[in-house]
């Protein structure tokens, strides 16, 4: 079976972004960019399914500017077999991304689409669910365990109250949570090998998807800053402050 893994290039999770002074957007110039951590977990899970003999091919797909080929290369170095880049500078929103991914699903016919539950830039947490709806696939979101069993997959999901397990007919969309696995480091030979793996480049026009974003960003601001606090010297002083200054206990 084929597994399709959609991945996104995002600012590295260790970087704290700043808002541009004209309040139009955040300033990403010269910041370190990486594969979205949840997407990296998705790649790892797909590669493990291949190593376990469940999957036969892992395809990484990314939609974005030319530079997102770097993140496709990362996925290839982690063990994906080939890549697809859908090249656009238009910064499509989740619905448009899902529509393009649906076309790729149409063409590739994967049995599982493994993707991140959320991008750490947009924090949308939508694309997997939208793709599942558009392709009429079931979905296992926020997965912490994935077990393929014949023509079904059992997914254990991290939910607000604990864990819930669902059984999904294949093909299905699965979105990853943090505890699904710990991604490996790419070895140097694998990084070298990844350079020779193919990346096919397509355009939204070729897929027949028109990118129309229906949300306009009017402004981007820094969140309200917290006023500076104080250090207390002892537990007694802490209790005193909480009782009489803050009046919260």
């Amino acid at each position: 079976m084929k597994i399709l893994v959609p991945i996104k290039r995002v600012v590295d999770y260790n970087v704290k972004v700043r808002v541009k002074s004209d309040n139009t957007d955040v300033d990403l110039s010269n910041l370190k960019m990486s594969i979205n951590p949840f997407c990296e977990i998705a790649v790892e899970e797909a590669v493990r399914l291949k190593e376990a003999g469940v999957a036969s091919e892992v395809i990484a797909v990314s939609i974005g500017e030319k530079a997102c080929q770097e993140q496709i290369r990362t996925a290839l170095a982690l063990g994906a077999d080939r890549g697809i880049q859908i090249e656009t500078d238009a910064q499509p929103q989740p619905l448009a991304i899902a529509k393009m991914l649906a076309k790729v699903v149409d063409a590739e016919q994967p049995q599982i689409v493994l993707m991140g539950k959320q991008t750490i830039d947009g924090d949308n947490n939508q694309t997997g669910q939208m793709l599942a709806a558009l392709t009429n696939m079931p979905q296992g979101t926020f997965a912490s365990e994935v077990k393929v069993d014949g023509d079904k997959v059992e997914v254990t999901r991290e939910v607000d109250g604990g864990l819930v397990t669902v059984a999904l007919n294949l093909p299905a969309v699965i979105t990853t949570d943090l505890r699904l696995n710990e991604p490996r480091y790419a070895s140097l030979p694998n990084i070298m090998k990844a350079k020779r793996k193919p990346i096919a480049v397509q355009t939204p026009e070729e897929l027949g998807v028109e990118i129309s974003n229906s949300l306009d960003v009017l402004k981007v601001e820094e969140p309200a800053a917290r006023s500076a606090g104080v250090m207390v010297e002892s537990v007694d002083e802490l209790i005193e402050k909480l009782r009489t200054t803050a009046k919260v206990i």
Partner: peptide
Amino acid sequence: AQISDIIRVDSADTFARPFYAGNAIATVK
């Protein structure tokens, strides 16, 4: 579209939502 995680309503079509782990707040229409 879906507008995720709104923290403020400005009008019937305009809302505020955090992104980048809450390091920025976008006003979206």
